[in-house]
């Protein structure tokens, strides 16, 4: 059974890049959202295994969305994907329950390795799982 991914980012191009990378990794994309509020609606409907979550977004930012996700389903694996490069932001996300962190700009290999690590898949193997 494929791992199910929800992509949350206010950038159209980032959502599309992550969709492209995730498809190549064999993940099932259950939805994409441009802000934390819409993401929570999709999260409740689809209960994804994995969420890729931007931080700087309108309406509800990534850290607020992360807290809501952890309150609802703490077993969800959340990977923060953000341009914010300061240490405090990464630590705040980890304290709230994020399992991974990728700094923008990122490469396909960084996304593959982080998703595999967070999902507990050895050797970065995702395709065909």
């Amino acid at each position: 059974m494929k791992n199910r991914l929800l992509i949350v980012d206010d950038s159209v191009i980032m959502r599309r890049v992550l969709e492209k990378y995730a498809r190549a990794l064999g993940l099932e994309i259950v939805g994409t959202a441009a802000n934390g509020r819409d993401a929570l609606g999709l999260f409740d409907r689809h209960k994804p295994d994995l969420v890729s979550l931007d931080i700087t977004m309108p309406l509800l930012d990534g850290l607020g969305c992360l807290k809501e996700i952890m309150d609802r389903r703490p077993e969800t694996k959340v990977v923060i994907i953000t341009a914010l490069a300061d240490r405090e932001t990464g630590l705040a996300a980890m304290r709230l329950g994020a399992k991974g962190f990728i700094q923008k700009p990122f490469t396909e290999a960084q996304v593959r390795d982080e998703f595999a690590q967070v999902l507990g898949l050895a050797g970065g193997a995702l395709v065909g799982d």
């Binding site: 700087t56 341009a83 490069a85 405090e88 923008k104």
Partner: peptide
């Protein structure tokens, strides 16, 4: 849509990455 969005994402990435030097009190908008 992609062409217009990429300039916003580039600006966001530059400002966000700059927090490594400026610290988390360097707040950036969407």
């Amino acid at each position: 849509a992609a062409v217009a969005d990429v300039v916003g994402e580039m600006a966001n990435t530059i400002a966000g990455n700059a927090r490594e030097a400026f610290g988390s009190a360097f707040m950036i908008s969407v």
